[in-house]
Design a protein around this nucleic acid. Structure first.
Lengths: 245, 245
DNA sequence: CAGTGGTCTAGACCACTTC
DNA sequence: AAGTGGTCTAGACCACTGC
């Protein structure tokens, strides 16, 4: 061990500080998903820096998909309600290459005490209340996806099966409009598993069939985990598509 | 159909043109992987634009991982030989979270006439010569990955099993140093399959075990596909890790 | 110390959208 | 025509590397 202590932050460019301040405003819901943020000139005045410095901050936030720039119109807070952004996190697509259209069927929505595993991923204390949702998604009448979802009860108070059934559209748009929670990024761990009795029934396939297991943790602003998903995909006629750069 | 023809390129910013010229130099091997490209000031002079315009072009190429900037030293052509970049495209990691270390065993390296399916992916004519490599990769003595690789024979002339066995290190570093071929990006399609007799033997698992099937097409400069891989992962103790943004 | 990339500014002008 | 983001420039200065 060296006696010389590490600098906390040896150097922090102005535009990084601006970026942090814009991020703080997003997190504080000063501007809501879908809304325009102030123009570059206004922000430059507010923070007392040049427009170029604000531009660089916004550039990086846009690259992270937190903001969306539209020439001639303004810069907007990213939203899952936008056309073409509803399925931003869905990597499943038909082998034929067409667009996948999934029909939702919610099976259950229960309030539970969190198991240690789930609590840890959501950064809750073991036993803290969580909501668990079960659903099946179908394509052309065939069940393709079986999914279990865990949410922290604190943020999603009063969520019921009826509310879910009343909603038509992507879940992340639902979270946004009903619980002011915008998903920023997610991490997935993928495995192959053999279908058990339960999955066999839900997906109408023989026991033992190979299925894709996708475990996802989704995060809002500030790297806060707010949703766990455990999905099982039948990949007979569709696949998980990934680009590596 | 409208009688008004679409503009080919309604507007092309200077920095995009600079980007295209740098890209052309990379494709023409004017600067090799691992080498430094000329300084921003030199490039600005060469293209008769300001340094800022060159910067923006380089910024985008760096964001695509084609170039790597190093403050105080210069800008370098990305290479798979670099420490930490050898496994840029490998998304498999142990459930424990440690680093995966795979040992290579090449089983075969044959010259074949390409099947239609492979030829199409490599943009060859059906029947054009291809090289097929079979290998198994093991972690801690356990076989984890069985992989078949197809390469266009034209670009990889004279590749033999002996040459592969003589090489210790990642394949993409091998392609780079022996065949002047740098991989830029890749696309993967992932499914779950049940192990057949052949896979059962290679991976020492029972027939029917669920395996991850990963089909990859890898591209060099100019979006040219130059490698097909069909991998099978045993995901009992490891998983495919993916980040969604 | 010289050379490289990195930050910041101020200003001119262009392209797109809306009124 | 006014307002927005997008491009391009020129210049000053900072941070990091290596001789």
């Amino acid at each position: 061990m060296s006696l010389i202590s590490e600098p906390i932050a040896s150097f922090s460019p102005l535009y990084q500080q601006i970026k942090a301040m814009i991020l703080a405003s997003l997190q504080a819901s000063e501007w809501l998903p879908g809304e325009a943020i102030p123009s570059e000139i206004e922000l430059a005045a507010r923070y007392a820096v040049s427009q170029g410095t604000v531009r660089k901050a916004i550039d990086e936030l846009a690259a992270q998909n937190l903001l969306v720039r539209r020439q001639g119109k303004g810069t907007f807070v990213a939203t899952h309600q936008e056309e073409g952004w509803q399925y931003r996190f869905l990597r499943l697509e038909p082998d034929s290459g067409e667009r996948l259209h999934l029909k939702n069927q919610f099976l259950a929505c229960q309030n539970l005490k969190s198991a240690p595993h789930i609590a840890q991923l959501l950064k809750l204390k073991g036993g803290d209340p969580v909501i668990r949702i079960d659903r099946v998604q179908s394509s052309g009448g065939k069940p393709i996806v079986f999914e279990e979802i865990w949410l922290p009860e604190g943020r999603f108070k009063g969520l019921t099966l009826d509310a879910l059934n009343a909603w038509s559209g992507p879940m992340y748009a639902f979270y946004e409009s009903e619980y002011a929670t915008h998903m920023v990024r997610a991490e997935e761990k993928i495995k192959a598993i053999n279908a058990d009795q339960n999955l066999s029934e839900h997906l109408h396939i023989p026991v033992g069939t190979a299925l894709l297991s996708v475990e996802r943790v989704a995060f809002t602003y500030g790297n806060k985990p707010v949703e766990i998903r455990r999905a099982r995909y039948d990949t007979t006629n569709q696949h998980y598509d990934n680009k590596l750069n």
